[in-house]
């Protein structure tokens, strides 16, 4: 029982990352009709926004120590971060400690700007081209972005810790009447789940309850008619692209403390996120979220030793097996609409 609860928690956590990325993917597909393989790279760039802010906050004045030496026997460098000399050692250290949550604010304008540049500079030239062309160009773009990040940050993962107060784990078992230490879950992963739920609800609320959202939804349903009504739908779709980039970026920022960011983390998520979108139904936002959580939980269960001993290797293929089964029985995915990618 305890193992099952743990894997449900795990699945919710994995699922929230899948759902956030798939949500952005499906937003772009639904509005612009573009299959964006560079979306994983946006997630990765989000994580590197956290790394960058951490580095900016850690910028230091360097003085040479009189007593200590470095590995070559020369005087060691003592680094004092500027924020510590400006705000005092304690406040400065606290600011550096909270660099990941602060990076949320930092990443939003950065990601929206990157989204705009991507859409205006490259992707808009591919709206009328076949999906295969879009896939090729966005996949190429993903590789370019990856290599740019690698050039500046190197290939090895960079530790980007959560604030000190969120380190450690929460004992769920005690709440539910189990022995202590049987069901524990890291605080930051709980934060991640809460944060994802918040972002997902915000996106839905934005689309559902604002005029802008209403126009976008109308555009998703029938782009031509909305255009004929005199609404500049292209402009709104560009903004939606920026928004989708920001969602992916935020998912990346918050993911940085879970696994140290490296330049190919986007690719690791990309394929799974596409499966999530296809299973959820191309262009369906609730479908993407539902499928994200469902596949996250399934994947977690499949990694349980009891299940792996019954079917060895199932943890590596479960998502694809389920995707095949769903597509066989419901070709449009769980919540896909008629007519999407069927012309």
């Amino acid at each position: 029982m305890d193992a099952i609860i743990l894997q449900i928690l795990n699945g919710l956590d994995k699922g929230s990352a899948y759902a956030l990325i798939a949500l952005g993917l499906t937003l772009i597909f639904g509005t612009l009709g573009v299959v964006n393989f560079a979306h994983g790279a946006l997630f990765m760039i989000g994580a590197f926004c956290a790394v960058t802010l951490q580095r900016i906050l850690s910028l230091s004045t360097v003085t040479l120590s009189k007593t200590e030496t470095n590995f070559l026997g020369q005087p060691a460098e003592i680094k004092t971060p500027y924020v510590e000399s400006w705000f005092g050692p304690e406040a400065g250290a606290a600011i550096i400690d909270w660099s990941v949550p602060l990076a949320i604010l930092f990443s939003i304008p950065v990601m929206i700007a990157i989204g705009f540049i991507m859409e205006r500079g490259l992707i808009k030239h591919f709206y009328k081209r076949p999906h295969a062309d879009q896939i090729l160009v966005t996949f190429g773009l993903a590789i370019v972005l990856q290599e740019v990040i690698k050039y500046f940050y190197g290939a090895n993962p960079i530790p980007t810790g959560a604030p000190e107060v969120f380190k450690g784990s929460f004992d769920f078992g005690v709440l539910l009447g189990f022995d202590p230490n049987t069901i524990i879950y890291p605080y930051w992963r709980l934060v991640y789940f809460g944060f994802s739920a918040l972002i997902i609800s915000a996106v839905f609320a934005f689309l559902q309850f604002t005029t802008f959202g209403m126009v976008v939804r109308a555009g998703m349903a029938d782009r031509e008619t909305v255009g004929l009504l005199g609404i500049n739908i292209d402009k709104r779709f560009t903004i939606m692209f920026g928004l989708a980039a920001a969602v992916a970026g935020l998912a990346g920022v918050m993911y940085a403390p879970i696994n140290s960011p490296n330049y190919h983390m986007g690719m690791d998520f990309l394929v799974l996120s596409f499966v999530v979108v296809v299973v959820g139904g191309m262009g369906s936002l609730p479908g993407a979220v539902l499928a994200g959580f469902m596949l996250g939980i399934l994947e977690s269960f499949a990694s349980m030793n009891e299940i792996k001993s019954l079917i060895p290797g199932i943890d590596q293929i479960i998502i694809y097996v389920v995707a095949i089964l769903i597509l066989l029985t419901r070709p449009r995915g769980l919540m896909g609409r008629k007519g999407v990618m069927e012309e």
């Binding site: 193992a3 894997q7 699945g11 696994n259 983390m265 943890d315």
Partner: peptide, 21 residues
């Protein structure tokens, strides 16, 4: 126990959780 994890794994939480108990 000896559990094999795929080389492409990035999140090991679902392999770590069973260790707890």
């Amino acid at each position: 126990n000896k559990v094999r994890t795929p080389l492409a794994s990035t999140d090991f939480s679902s392999y770590i959780a069973p260790v707890l108990n």
